[in-house]
Simulated scan of single mutants.
Amino acid sequence: MAKNRSYLKFEGTLDGLTYYDQKGQSLVKTKTSLTKSRIMKDAKFKTTRQNMTEFGGCAQAGKAFRKAFAGMVGMMGDSYISARVSALMKRINLKTPGLRGRRGIDLVTNADLLVDFSFNPADSLEAILLAPYASPTLDANRDVATWLVPDFNTDSLLKSPEGATHFQLILSLGTVSNYQYVDSMTKYQPVEKDFNSKGITAYSAYIPIGGMVGADTTLTADLGIGAPLPATVVAIAAIGILFFQEVDGVQNQFAQGNSLVVATAE
């Protein structure tokens, strides 16, 4: 792939060369004879088509995950979270039995692969919240999550960004259905549409930074379903922290230094 260093910057195809802009750079490549029609019809591209179908299903499952944690994705996610979630769904897809191009996305069986997924790897929760705590637990229906963080000293067991005066602990609970390929629709669909992409987040009170928290912190995230989740739906609990600076009695949230990670999935 070549770069166009001329002072003339343009886009399009000329004499077999295609000029285009990518992240502010003017690039040029040779025009290909490969067309979408050929990819979709030529027997030589059967594997490519099968991979495209599965990638499409993984993208749908990834979108369902992001929707379940919609508020947190925008607040905590890095710029690559969409691609990272889709890649995670592809790992699960490859572990699900079936014919290539028709393999399902069995999130429930492979729930362990969801654990430790960080919404922003640059801000690791284990490097920020050093206090001892257990993973959140789910009730028998899997629609209520509970997280207990014992009282701790914020001076020694919390790595807060400079200028932060307060923090909140967070517990998010989301559900995502398994996905299957539906022949009549020639695409992937959630097995349990009604239970797909549900989510809720619980926040602690604003906790001052400095000294002991003063008490154990217990968070409960309740989806309000009140009945057992279907066996083809995974419940995902993520835990995290938000930092704030208090100015004139107003809590101003920090844009960086916050963290959220999947801690329980079943």
Rank of each mutant, 00 (worst) to 15 (best):
P228I: 09
K193T: 13
I209M: 03
A238G: 07
Y181H: 11
Q189V: 14
E246P: 00
V191F: 02
S204G: 07
A238C: 04
S204V: 07
E192D: 13
S177A: 11
S172F: 10
S184K: 14
T201D: 03
G210A: 09
S184N: 14
Y206W: 06
A215N: 14
A235N: 00
N252D: 12
Q245I: 02
V191N: 03
I200Y: 01
G199Y: 02
L229M: 03
Y188Q: 02
K198W: 04
S177K: 08
I239C: 04
T186Y: 11
L229G: 00
V213E: 08
V250L: 12
G210Y: 05
Q245D: 10
G249I: 14
D248S: 15
A227H: 06
L223N: 06
Q189H: 07
G199W: 00
L171N: 08
L173H: 08
Y203S: 01
S177M: 05
K187Y: 01
F243S: 05
A202K: 06
N252Y: 12
A237Y: 02
Q251P: 00
D222N: 15
D216L: 13
G226C: 07
V213F: 10
V234P: 00
K198E: 04
V234C: 04
A237K: 01
N178T: 09
A231K: 09
V233L: 00
K187R: 13
F195Q: 04
G240D: 02
A238V: 05
F195M: 09
P228F: 03
A227M: 12
G249T: 09
P230Q: 08
A235R: 01
G211L: 10
A221V: 07
G224Q: 08
G226Q: 07
P230F: 10
A221E: 06
G224S: 09
K193Q: 07
I200T: 12
